[in-house]
Simulated assay, not measured.
Amino acid sequence: MNKITIIGAGRVGETTAQILAEKELCREIALLDVREGIPEGIALDILQTGPFFEFDCSVNGSNDPQILRDSELVIVTAGLARKPGMSRSDVLEANVRIIDAVTDQILEYAPDAMVLMVSNPVDTLTYRFAQRSGWERRRIFGQAGVLDASRMASFIAQETGFSTLDITTMVLGGHGDTMVPVPRFCTINGIPISTFISEERIAAIMERTRQGGAEILALRKNSSAYDAPGAAVAAMVDAIVNNRRRLLSCVALLEGEYGETDLAMGVPCILGEKGMESIVELSLNPGERADFDRSVASVRGDIDRLRAISSTQELE
Rank of each mutant, 00 (worst) to 15 (best):
I309T: 04
Q66F: 02
N120K: 13
R11L: 14
T103R: 06
R69F: 03
N285W: 12
S133T: 10
R132H: 06
D112Q: 12
I75N: 03
Q131P: 09
E136C: 08
I309H: 04
F53Q: 05
D45C: 06
R151Y: 15
T126G: 11
V267I: 11
E255A: 12
A232E: 05
T49E: 12
V299M: 09
L248Y: 07
Q18E: 13
L165K: 13
E200K: 12
A43V: 04
N63M: 08
G50C: 10
G10T: 03
A21F: 04
S119E: 02
A234I: 05
S62K: 08
I99Q: 01
E36G: 06
L92R: 02
R128A: 08
I240M: 15
Y109G: 11
G287P: 00
V237S: 03
R151A: 08
F162E: 11
L217I: 12
G50Y: 01
L247E: 15
M179Q: 13
Y127D: 03
D90K: 01
G142L: 03
Q313M: 14
F52V: 12
F141Q: 07
L271H: 03
L80T: 10
A235P: 00
I106Q: 06
S194T: 12
L271G: 05
L125G: 08
D104T: 10
P39R: 01
R184L: 11
C57H: 06
A110K: 00
M86L: 07
A110S: 14
S87C: 07
L47E: 11
F141E: 09
R69Y: 01
V96D: 00
P51T: 02
L254T: 06
E314A: 15
L20Y: 05
G256K: 07
A17E: 00
N60I: 11
V96G: 00
E316G: 15
D100F: 04
T209M: 00
N243A: 15
R27S: 13
G287L: 09
G61T: 01
P229V: 05
R128D: 05
N95F: 01
R128E: 05
F53E: 05
E24P: 02
D166G: 15
S223E: 08
T312M: 13
L44E: 14
A9G: 04
V102M: 08
E36Y: 04
L32I: 05
A9S: 15
P121M: 04
L80I: 06
M86E: 15
A101D: 11
G37A: 06
L315T: 13
D238C: 08
Q131E: 15
L25H: 01
F129T: 01
